[in-house]
Design a protein around this nucleic acid. Structure first.
Length: 486
RNA sequence: GGUCCCAUCGUCUAGUGGUUAGGACGCUGGCCUCUCACGCCGGAAACCGGGGUUCAAGUCCCCGUGGGACUACCA
């Protein structure tokens, strides 16, 4: 028989006679750091795909690297997923707790002659690799131990006996068919010297045993896929569907990393981003639904399919994320934002008066892009004594306006309807009676109330601050004018 | 080096042989206006190159070029 034909494999996909197979996806991060943007999008796609199809989403922590895995990382990843609303139906499973299973599978392969023990040392391998590279050859395991039929010994590893001829076809739901010549594939190590399975083996065993039907993961795994398919077959498992999503790049088109700015999901929470903004931004990186930009969670679940995931890598654009964040802040309910703001207020801000705080938030919602920005902009509301910006005071807190301010300070207590409408009416009559344009007192008033030249609308501020504070601040401004001109 | 993937405005993308190549972020002109935002109206801005196939190519094929990933006893 010729070996040129793609080897067919059984697919776990729903087949005509097996309509009951439930779609199961998984997210399988390794706990070697926080959840980063790229991982978050992979998790999101898996979550959306399972939700869209009424399937199940499994979380598995791949902690077989004993050196680098930490419990803190696991917790950080779980927290970040919870924040984004990516709830899982099963798990978290911990891969390291499944090593007995992995070892049994390794032994099964050895018994069947599909894997073998190798005693080459890392140093020897490294030297061979260097030599091969130097002479322009493939840095691939040379098969020294392949036919030796060695027994396990301290430090020995187990290698998978790969096919050396033929073609393996990866049927990727996003990229289409990709074929690999089996002779390009290594006899890779499936059990390390320390007795732990390696990623490429454990992932196959676990995905198969957990009945994962669709493996949706980063593009960086495509080259691993043919060997994994070979292992599914060697183990007698059905091969799942694969979907490899393109990478997320930084502004210089290199793989996104710390030097491009924040890459940790939770860093965005701390910077005052709303989870729905991040989710909405991330989903549009690689996926689209016509011209729509804003999606509710329900719409995402309704619309998400792998068909609409693009093939090309995407550059992470913080500006657009910021725009989405501003959008969601604008749309959010002030009561909800009050909760989100709790850890973000500036030191010294007493946000215990819920009614007042909610008004502050409502004033600021349309003009901030992050919650941190809101905290900063809100400072003047909460202070007892306004600090005037030097330039602002110099320009607007001048003797010419003192009389107007005094008149206003004495008129305000008589305002009966201290609402936006009532104040508009009051201000209108006030300037008419004094024969001035609103412009004449607008900026001085703003500086008196906020200390700054930029702020929400004057009527909004006054309503939020309330009569007493307004009068007190105007009087303070009058005093400041008089003091500075003594 | 080898293997594999990718290629529409600066960026995210729509587009599935016939479109004035659409939308969004950003940039920008204007309107609104008590400042700043918001909002609204307008503008500049793209099919990587070369060959095919076809009456017709951003769309299909090939070759370049450019980017990326993998090439570990990491995942």
């Amino acid at each position: 028989m010729t070996n040129d034909q793609p080897q067919p494999y059984n697919s776990a996909k729903i087949k005509g006679n097996n309509m009951t197979t439930k779609i199961r996806t998984r997210f399988a991060p390794s706990p070697t750091g926080y959840l980063h943007i790229g991982g978050a999008r992979t998790a999101l796609f898996n979550w959306l795909f399972s939700r869209h199809n009424g399937g199940e989403f499994v979380l598995r922590i791949e902690d077989t690297d004993q050196q680098r895995s930490t419990d803190e990382s696991t917790k950080a990843i779980l927290d970040a997923m919870a924040w984004m609303g990516l709830n899982w139906d099963e798990g978290p499973h911990f891969q390291a707790q499944r090593v007995d299973l992995h070892r049994d599978m390794v032994q099964k392969l050895i018994n069947e002659g599909k894997a073998y023990v190798c005693t080459c040392t890392p140093e020897e391998l490294e030297n061979k690799r260097k030599e091969a590279l130097a002479t322009g050859k493939k840095p691939k395991y040379d098969g020294t131990c392949r036919e030796k039929n060695l027994k396990k010994s301290p430090g020995s590893v187990v290698r998978f006996r790969g096919a050396q001829t033929g073609i393996t076809l990866v049927k990727d739901l996003i990229k289409g068919n990709i074929s690999f010549n089996n002779d390009e594939l290594d006899d890779l190590i499936i059990e390390r010297g320390d007795g732990y399975p390696t990623y490429n083996f454990a992932v196959v065993v676990d995905d198969a045993m957990m009945n994962i039907t669709h493996v949706i993961r980063g593009d960086d795994h495509v080259n691993n896929t043919p060997r994994q398919i070979l292992m599914y077959q060697a183990l007698g498992f059905d091969v799942p569907e694969f979907a490899h999503v393109p990478m997320i790049l930084g502004s210089d088109k290199a793989r996104l990393s710390k030097r491009h700015g924040a890459t940790s999901v939770m860093a965005y929470k701390e910077m005052g981003y709303l989870p729905e903004a991040l989710v909405n931004y991330l989903v549009r990186l690689g996926w689209s639904h016509g011209d729509q930009e804003i999606f509710s969670q329900k719409e995402l679940i309704d619309y998400f399919t792998l068909d609409n995931v693009g093939k090309s890598p995407a550059v992470f654009n913080p500006e657009k994320l910021l725009w989405l964040n501003a959008h969601y802040i604008k749309e959010a309910n002030p009561a909800r934002l009050m909760e989100e703001m709790k850890p973000l207020w500036s030191a010294g801000t007493d946000a215990t008066d819920a009614v007042f705080t909610k008004k502050v938030i409502a004033d600021l919602q349309p003009r901030v892009k992050t919650l941190l920005e809101m905290a900063d902009m809100a400072n003047f509301y909460f202070t007892d004594s306004i600090q005037y910006e030097e330039q602002a005071a110099q320009k607007f807190l001048v003797p010419e306006v003192a009389a107007h301010l005094k008149a206003m300070a004495s008129a305000i207590p008589t305002v009966r309807n201290f609402s936006k409408e009532g104040l508009e009416e009051f201000l209108k009559t006030f300037i008419e009676e004094r024969g001035i344009k609103f412009k004449i007192i607008a900026q001085p008033l703003r500086v008196a109330l906020t200390g700054k030249t930029v702020s929400p609308g004057i009527d909004e501020i006054m309503v939020t601050l309330g009569k007493d504070r307004v009068v007190q601040r105007i009087n303070a401004a009058i005093a400041a004018i008089e003091n500075r001109n003594k």
